[in-house]
Nucleic acid binder design. Structure first.
Length: 266
DNA sequence: CGGCCATCCTGCACGC
DNA sequence: TGCGTGCAGGATGGCC
């Protein structure tokens, strides 16, 4: 499933392939996948001026306004016609097309006249220069929440999905049920490093590696090799050999090592 | 405000 | 083998 690194990879690809293309036709095969305040044809005859990423959203900027795309779990944007599960197609004057393929149909493409406004509720970018340790410490202190659901909350911090959160908390030695404001500075520092390292490494890997995501915890490719707790319930911790535990937290499967990760509550 | 739940949707794993 | 059931996930919205 696409998390921030895969979205970043998609954006970089689109920057090289669709900027400058003019939309000649919009084809909506699955009605819920496309939203626009006005009629669908607002995008027709508009030219793509830039493609940017914000959080896990892809912003396809037009002469005016933008198409904001969220791939959710199974969405893909591809210039090659996929046989199945195409929800939206952008046809270009050049004769080329861009297909939004989405097996599970959770993904959305939304036309908005003001993309920055639409995405203004989102938290800071973890890989941005502004995301420094002192800021992160303040952010965690300001909330009194269970840390895992907090890190998944995109209005708090963007980019982390269920898999990366489990991995980052493991690397930082923090038990997922810990309360955000009680985590010691040392562990906050480790968490900050873990989040940035995991995301950056994953972006770097996707530039050169074809990752094959199949389903749930059945993840293959180099990505899987990097997973230390996610999907490893009952298997030995790579540090201490104690069996990895799986619990339900905020409706999400949560994996951690009961020995290596401390529960900070006060 | 925070925690919890359902919702969306499909494919896959599991048990009988 | 074949069927039914449950689970996985990101984001949103409703409820208490």
């Amino acid at each position: 499933m696409p998390e921030l690194p895969e979205v970043e990879t998609v954006v970089r690809g689109l920057q090289n392939t669709i900027v400058g293309e003019t939309i000649s036709e919009l084809e909506v095969a699955w009605d819920k996948a496309f939203e626009a305040e006005d009629a669908y044809d607002v995008v027709v005859n508009k030219t793509i001026r830039a493609v940017e990423r914000r959080a896990k959203y892809i912003m396809i900027k037009l002469d005016s306004g933008a198409l904001v795309v969220h791939l959710r779990m199974t969405g893909k944007l591809t210039p090659v016609y996929p046989e199945k599960h195409v929800t939206v197609t952008l046809h270009f004057r050049s004769g080329k097309s861009l297909y939004f393929q989405d097996t599970r149909k959770f993904g959305r493409m939304i036309y908005t006249p003001d993309p920055d406004d639409m995405l203004s509720h989102l938290g800071p970018e973890p890989l941005g220069d502004a995301f420094i340790i002192s800021l992160f410490r303040k952010m965690l202190k300001a909330k009194k929440r269970v840390i895992k659901p907090l890190l998944l909350d995109q209005t708090f911090l963007v980019g982390l999905g269920n898999i990366y959160v489990d991995e980052a908390l493991f690397q930082a030695g923090i038990q997922p049920e810990s309360l955000s404001h009680t985590v010691p500075a040392r562990n906050v520092e480790m968490l900050h490093t873990a989040i940035r390292t995991i995301l950056q490494n994953s972006i770097d890997a996707q530039g050169t590696t074809v990752l094959n995501f199949s389903h749930g915890d059945n993840v293959s490719g180099t990505y899987q090799a990097a997973l230390q707790v996610y999907g490893r319930e009952g298997e030995p911790c790579l540090i201490c050999d104690y069996p990895i535990k799986k619990i339900k937290l905020g409706q999400r499967g949560t994996h951690y090592c009961p020995k290596c990760q401390r529960k900070f509550r006060r």
